[in-house]
Simulated scan of single mutants.
Amino acid sequence: MTKADLINILIQEMGMSKKNAEAVVNTFLGSMIESLKKGEGIELRGFGSLRIRERKPRIGRNPQTGEKVNVPAKKIVYFKPGKELKEATK
């Protein structure tokens, strides 16, 4: 599903105008991004939760040459599915 698909669902099922549907989707996604930037977690009951995890620096290797490479620390978004989502996808 894409952002455009979400907008089309709002238009069809909620009777919204395209402009309003785009504003709703953009506001929703924008607020999620801002929360994650601040280090806050996001919890959507029945769907799942998102949070930032920090990966420690490590030594990896280049698969082509076998040479050791330093991989720096970084932050990643981690998604944990909720109970209802887990059951729905079994």
Rank of each mutant, 00 (worst) to 15 (best):
M1E: 13
T2Y: 07
K3V: 00
K3S: 05
K3L: 02
K3N: 08
K3A: 01
A4F: 07
A4V: 09
D5M: 11
D5Q: 14
D5P: 10
L6V: 05
L6D: 03
I7A: 06
I7M: 07
I7L: 07
N8G: 09
I9S: 13
I9Q: 13
L10E: 00
L10H: 04
L10P: 03
I11L: 05
I11F: 10
I11T: 01
I11H: 08
Q12T: 10
E13A: 13
E13Y: 14
M14Y: 14
M14E: 15
M14D: 14
M14V: 12
G15N: 08
G15C: 07
G15S: 07
G15P: 04
M16C: 06
S17T: 15
S17F: 09
S17V: 06
S17P: 03
S17C: 08
S17R: 12
K18V: 06
K18A: 12
K19I: 11
K19P: 05
N20G: 06
N20I: 10
N20D: 15
N20K: 15
E22Q: 15
E22L: 13
V25A: 07
V25P: 03
T27I: 04
F28I: 12
F28D: 00
F28A: 14
L29E: 05
L29S: 11
L29G: 05
M32K: 03
M32C: 11
M32T: 03
M32I: 06
I33L: 12
I33R: 15
I33M: 13
E34Y: 02
S35P: 02
L36N: 00
L36T: 00
K37A: 00
K37M: 02
K38M: 08
G39M: 04
E40C: 03
E40N: 13
G41N: 13
I42K: 01
I42F: 00
R45T: 02
G46Q: 05
G46R: 04
F47T: 02
G48W: 07
G48M: 04
G48V: 01
G48T: 03
G48D: 02
S49Y: 01
S49R: 07
L50H: 01
R51Y: 14
R51A: 10
R51K: 15
I52E: 06
R53Y: 11
R53D: 11
E54H: 11
E54Y: 05
K56T: 03
R58Y: 06
R58T: 07
I59K: 15
I59W: 11
G60C: 11
R61M: 01
R61H: 06
R61F: 00
P63W: 08
Q64I: 01
T65L: 08
T65A: 04
G66A: 02
E67R: 15
E67D: 12
K68S: 14
K68V: 04
K68W: 09
V69A: 03
V71F: 09
V71H: 11
P72L: 11
P72V: 07
P72A: 12
A73K: 12
A73I: 02
A73S: 14
K74A: 13
I76Y: 08
I76M: 10
V77I: 15
V77C: 13
Y78S: 15
Y78I: 06
Y78T: 12
F79N: 08
K80M: 08
K80D: 03
P81A: 10
P81Y: 05
P81V: 02
K83N: 10
E84K: 15
L85D: 05
K86F: 06
E87W: 08
A88Q: 13
A88S: 14
T89V: 15
T89I: 14
T89W: 08
T89E: 05
K90P: 00
K90Y: 06
